[in-house]
Each structure stands twice: as C-alpha cells, then as structure tokens.
Amino acid sequence: MKEVKAYVHRGRVADIVHGLEQAGFVHLSVNDVKGLLSASSERERTYSIELGERVTNQVRLEVFCEDAEAAEAVALIRKHGRTGQRIGGWVYVSAVEEAWPIEGG
C-alpha cells in the first residue's frame, strides 16, 4: 500500500479531489496547512507569528492506495494541481507497511 501526499495551492484542491474521485480513489484526506510555497495570489499569504515570517495558506492532500495505483494518483494530482507557476506544489509517495480499519461494533 502507498500513501501519496501532496502540498498544493488551496485554489486547486477541488479539481484535484474531483479528478481523484472520478478515477475511483476514495481514501482521501484534506487538511489546511501553512507552508513556504510561492503564493499564486496575495490572498494566499499571511503572517505566521509562530514562525516570524510570511507563509502561504496551502492544502495537504493524502491519498492511500494500492502500490499499482500510486502512479495514477500522482499523475492526477500533478495534472489538476497546475497553477501556471514554475513549481505549484509537491507530491510525495511513501510505503505504508500496515493498515487496519477501525470497526464500529
């Protein structure tokens, strides 16, 4: 199993999620984060008191999938995450050693 993690601009995440869902990827999580990506607009920028510098509001997207599906997930994220900037985010792939469902009963 693989974890595909991406740090993308907030304005691109809806298209990325829709693309992944249409391709059958359902094990997704989306979290707001702050990072140092180049902002695509001033609305993405804010000042972090904790870090003492300007940061960019961005999104961390996590997709869990079978090994053979990871390349497709990466391709979809890169396709739908484009911003027109030289670097519009980053995608990482990691191995997941084990995974278990949390059962309700």
Score class of each variant (00 low, 15 high):
residue 28 L to G: 07
residue 87 I to N: 13
residue 13 V to L: 03
residue 49 I to P: 02
residue 9 H to A: 08
residue 61 L to P: 00
residue 31 N to F: 09
residue 54 R to N: 12
residue 16 I to L: 03
residue 97 E to V: 13
residue 51 L to F: 12
residue 81 G to I: 02
residue 88 G to T: 09
residue 29 S to T: 15
residue 96 V to I: 15
residue 27 H to N: 15
residue 22 Q to C: 07
residue 74 V to E: 08
residue 57 N to Y: 08
residue 14 A to D: 08
residue 93 V to C: 05
residue 79 K to I: 03
residue 15 D to P: 02
residue 7 Y to E: 02
residue 77 I to W: 01
residue 62 E to H: 07
residue 53 E to P: 10
residue 67 D to K: 15
residue 35 G to N: 08
residue 76 L to Q: 00
residue 88 G to R: 05
residue 28 L to D: 09
residue 26 V to R: 10
residue 35 G to P: 04
residue 16 I to M: 02
residue 58 Q to A: 11
residue 40 S to G: 13
residue 100 W to I: 07
residue 26 V to N: 07
residue 79 K to S: 13
residue 84 G to Y: 14
residue 72 E to N: 08
residue 32 D to I: 10
residue 54 R to M: 13
residue 11 G to P: 00
residue 38 S to Y: 11
residue 20 L to Y: 00
residue 70 A to F: 03
residue 43 R to T: 05
residue 56 T to N: 11
residue 40 S to L: 11
residue 57 N to D: 12
residue 95 A to E: 09
residue 89 G to L: 04
residue 42 E to I: 12
residue 91 V to W: 07
residue 105 G to N: 06
residue 79 K to W: 09
residue 30 V to N: 10
residue 40 S to K: 14
residue 78 R to M: 09
residue 99 A to E: 12
residue 92 Y to L: 14
residue 47 Y to R: 15
residue 52 G to P: 05
residue 90 W to E: 05
residue 84 G to N: 10
residue 12 R to N: 01
residue 103 E to T: 12
residue 27 H to I: 10
residue 84 G to D: 11
residue 22 Q to Y: 07
residue 52 G to E: 06
residue 87 I to S: 14
residue 41 S to C: 13
residue 72 E to F: 01
residue 104 G to L: 11
residue 94 S to G: 09
residue 19 G to T: 03
residue 34 K to A: 05
residue 17 V to T: 04
residue 93 V to Q: 02
residue 33 V to E: 13
residue 50 E to F: 12
residue 61 L to A: 03
residue 83 T to P: 04
residue 2 K to M: 04
residue 54 R to Y: 13
residue 104 G to A: 10
residue 64 F to I: 07
residue 71 A to H: 12
residue 68 A to T: 09
residue 30 V to I: 15
residue 89 G to M: 01
residue 24 G to M: 06
residue 48 S to V: 12
residue 18 H to P: 00
residue 103 E to N: 10
residue 28 L to P: 08
residue 98 E to L: 07
residue 24 G to P: 02
residue 28 L to K: 06
residue 14 A to H: 08
residue 83 T to K: 07
residue 78 R to S: 10
residue 44 E to W: 07
residue 51 L to H: 13
residue 60 R to G: 02
residue 85 Q to L: 14
residue 82 R to I: 05
residue 20 L to V: 01
residue 18 H to D: 03
residue 94 S to K: 11
residue 68 A to M: 11
residue 11 G to N: 07
residue 84 G to I: 10
residue 26 V to H: 06
residue 84 G to E: 08
residue 2 K to P: 01
residue 17 V to G: 00
residue 44 E to S: 12
residue 34 K to P: 00
residue 6 A to P: 00
residue 56 T to Y: 04
residue 39 A to Y: 05
residue 60 R to K: 13
residue 19 G to K: 01
residue 44 E to Q: 15
residue 67 D to M: 10
residue 35 G to W: 07
residue 12 R to D: 00
residue 92 Y to D: 08
residue 21 E to S: 06
residue 82 R to F: 06
residue 64 F to L: 10
residue 71 A to M: 11
residue 19 G to P: 02
residue 104 G to D: 10
residue 55 V to F: 05
residue 40 S to A: 15
residue 88 G to A: 15
residue 43 R to C: 05
residue 31 N to H: 14
residue 13 V to A: 01
residue 10 R to V: 05
residue 65 C to R: 00
residue 58 Q to L: 08
residue 88 G to M: 04
residue 30 V to R: 11
residue 4 V to M: 03
residue 5 K to H: 02
residue 32 D to P: 11
residue 19 G to Q: 02
residue 100 W to V: 10
